[in-house]
């Protein structure tokens, strides 16, 4: 269906596109240009970059310590005079500092767990796709079986059994999220292996490693990049979810999910304790989703109708 839709659009331009005076561009350059044209994605990338800087360096620049309880200002609203720009919580801790430090954990979980899922998913998927045949069928059957498990519940079970530990959160989330990656990479490898250009390269006597380096990896890279960008917000969301339920990171460590949970307790008297971490969390997820969307559109032009 996509192909026909594409065909229908391309047909009239066939001549236009096949001609020499249109400057040749590599697919990566093309993708880059498409990405730059996607304003939502570009703004999101800027905001995200700013957010990372803020979270990493912000706490060093603010004079409050995250665990300092300012008894003169408990549950005080945002104000410039008190120095608590985004207010304080019920025990007088500065919301901004707590939110930024919570952001470190949230973003760290997002990054580490995504890398875990990336490593497992890519190696598993590429292996299955590369070998094909029976091995592939068996491996993918395993993925299917695991896929149908109710993960959020198993994860909660895991937290209950082993206690809440940040390392466990990294590994558990990553280990759960590799399935999609494995499927996507496997599918891509499998279809790449059978494409004409790989066959042509093989027929021309190009060596295996060169085929992998020149044809398979660059073509795989696109989907992996897109998928990584979409996995990060997912992972952040799962961690916040667990933390919100009180099953994630433990005091004195905090994450956005835990802060939202705290804020929800006091929201009637001190709504800023809910709103500030909520905004940080939402903006982050929003930006990541837009960047992922933009990357997908840029790297996979057939979906760009």
């Amino acid at each position: 269906m996509t192909k026909n839709a594409e065909q229908q659009l391309v047909d009239p331009f066939e001549a236009a596109l096949g001609v020499s005076d249109v400057k040749g561009r590599s697919p990566w350059e093309d993708a880059w240009h498409r990405l730059l044209k996607n304003r939502a994605a570009v703004y999101s990338a800027f905001i995200m970059g700013f957010m990372v800087l803020l979270v990493v360096f912000g706490p060093m620049l603010i004079s409050w310590e995250s665990d300092f309880t300012d008894w003169d200002y408990t549950s005080s609203p945002p104000s410039l005079e008190s120095g608590h720009w985004f207010g304080t919580d019920a025990v007088g801790r500065d919301i901004l500092v707590r939110t930024l430090e919570g952001g470190r954990i949230s973003l760290l979980v997002g990054l580490v767990a995504t890398i875990v899922s990336l490593v497992i998913g890519v190696s598993y998927g590429a292996t299955a796709g590369y070998f094909g045949g029976t091995a592939d069928r068996m491996m993918m059957r395993v993925v299917d079986i695991i896929y149908a498990l109710p993960f959020m519940f198993l994860m909660i079970l895991l937290m209950v059994v082993f206690g809440r530990h940040i390392l466990l959160i990294f590994v558990a989330i990553g280990a759960v999220n590799w399935l999609d990656m494995a499927r996507i990479v496997r599918g891509q490898t499998l279809s790449l292996k059978n494409t004409e250009f790989v066959e042509a390269a093989r027929a021309c006597g190009v060596q295996d490693w060169a085929i992998i380096r020149r044809h398979i990896v660059p073509n795989l890279l696109g989907v992996v990049i897109v998928y990584v960008t979409l996995t990060i917000p997912q992972v952040i969301l799962i961690e916040s979810f667990l933390s919100f339920l009180g099953l994630g990171v433990q005091e004195p460590m905090s994450s956005w999910g835990a802060l939202v949970s705290d804020g929800a307790q006091d929201m009637e008297s001190a709504p800023w304790t809910l709103i500030v971490p909520s905004v940080f969390l939402t903006v982050t997820l929003y930006c990541f989703n837009y960047i992922g969307d933009g990357l997908r559109d840029a790297l996979d032009p057939k979906d760009r109708l």
Binding site: M267, L274, L285
Partner: peptide, 22 residues
């Protein structure tokens, strides 16, 4: 729609409670 995907349940719920209930 993108906002709906990005705002977690546990964020939108307290905010709705705050606005519509409280």
């Amino acid at each position: 729609a993108m906002l709906g995907i990005s705002i977690p349940n546990f964020v939108i719920a307290p905010i709705l409670i705050l606005l519509l209930a409280v």
